[in-house]
Amino acid sequence: MAESTRTLDWNGANGDHWVAYEEKYNAAMFRYGERLFAGADVHPDDRVLDIGCGCGQTTRVAAALAPEGSALGVDLSAAMLAQARARAAAEGLANVRFEQADAQVHDFADGAYDVAISRHGVMFFADPVAAFANVRRALRPAGRLAFVCWRAPEESEYSGVPRAALGPYVTLPPPGGSAHEPGPNSLADPDRVREVLGGAGFADVQLEAENEPMDLGADVAEALDFVLDRPHVHAALAETDAATGAKATEDLREALTPYATPEGVLLRAPAWLVTAHAPA
């Protein structure tokens, strides 16, 4: 199958950025990883499918929770999967593997998995009903689904604070994603989530509002570097003159400063924890 524009995107600047900042993203989303696995309830002998696994941290956690089972991580990004395989090898995990695949259309074996999980990896499907139906077919009868996805961007300090600070100086792309458009916020509407999962054949769909913060860095300087090197921010600032870029950077620094705590620079990032079951 020819690479889609989504595949090419994750095999370009976005994928490279996530590899470079792998440990930073894992630390930033640590609390949501905990919420995900609380909802997934992985058993020692489970076969786990991790959708949009990125550099594979959640897949490796799943494999450790299922020592008598297995974990498969799938993602579009070759660079992130290479990192995932290297990490798993370094940790000596024999029950984990990774595959470059689009979960929306990949030919998973029917009923091959007990639980499917995703940490912010399921919002980018062009046809979410078809994608989740494909995932549902990969689950055994009564198999479990658990994922976390972002709520509306206007509720998020993680999204809103940098945008407000940089907005007077650069044009940033919109947050992206709606009920009819793939992107980070495409599953923000709880009614849409229920509609999609119900249409895909899932039952007992539950949404729990979570309000964990994102940790952008140990201090303001580290958080500033993290935000400035995000591909869309870096590209926007590259189009400005030096004076404008310096002013934008300083305003961003000032905007992040109030969020500095002894535990890091913490910005609220509301999300849903979604759980459901395949039919018994």
Rank of each mutant, 00 (worst) to 15 (best):
V105C: 12
D107K: 13
D107M: 06
F108S: 14
A109S: 12
A109R: 14
A109W: 04
D110F: 00
Y113F: 15
I117S: 06
S118Y: 05
S118C: 04
R119H: 10
R119A: 10
R119P: 00
H120Y: 12
M123N: 08
F124Y: 15
F124Q: 06
D127Y: 07
V129N: 02
V129Q: 02
V129I: 13
A130K: 07
A130S: 11
A130F: 01
A131R: 08
A131M: 03
F132L: 01
A133R: 14
A133M: 03
V135P: 00
V135K: 02
R136G: 07
R136P: 05
R140G: 00
R140C: 02
P141M: 05
P141A: 05
A142I: 01
A142L: 00
A142W: 00
A142R: 11
G143A: 06
G143N: 03
R144H: 13
R144V: 02
R144G: 03
L145Q: 01
L145V: 03
A146H: 07
F147W: 13
F147K: 04
F147S: 02
C149I: 03
C149N: 08
W150P: 00
W150K: 00
A152F: 06
A152H: 15
A152V: 04
A152S: 11
P153V: 08
P153L: 05
P153N: 07
S156N: 10
S156T: 05
S156F: 04
E157Y: 05
Y158F: 15
Y158Q: 13
V161W: 01
P162K: 10
R163Y: 07
A165C: 13
L166V: 10
L166I: 10
L166P: 06
P175G: 12
G176L: 13
G176E: 14
G177K: 12
G177R: 13
S178K: 06
A179G: 14
H180I: 05
H180Y: 12
E181F: 03
G183M: 10
N185L: 09
S186C: 08
L187F: 14
A188G: 09
A188D: 08
D189L: 12
D189R: 13
D189Q: 11
P190E: 13
R192Q: 14
V193G: 07
R194C: 05
R194K: 15
V196I: 15
G198I: 05
A200H: 01
A200N: 01
F202K: 01
F202S: 03
F202L: 04
A203W: 01
V205F: 06
V205W: 03
Q206E: 14
L207R: 09
A209I: 02
E210W: 09
E210Q: 13
E210V: 11
E210I: 13
E210K: 03
N211P: 00
N211E: 14
E212N: 09
E212Q: 12
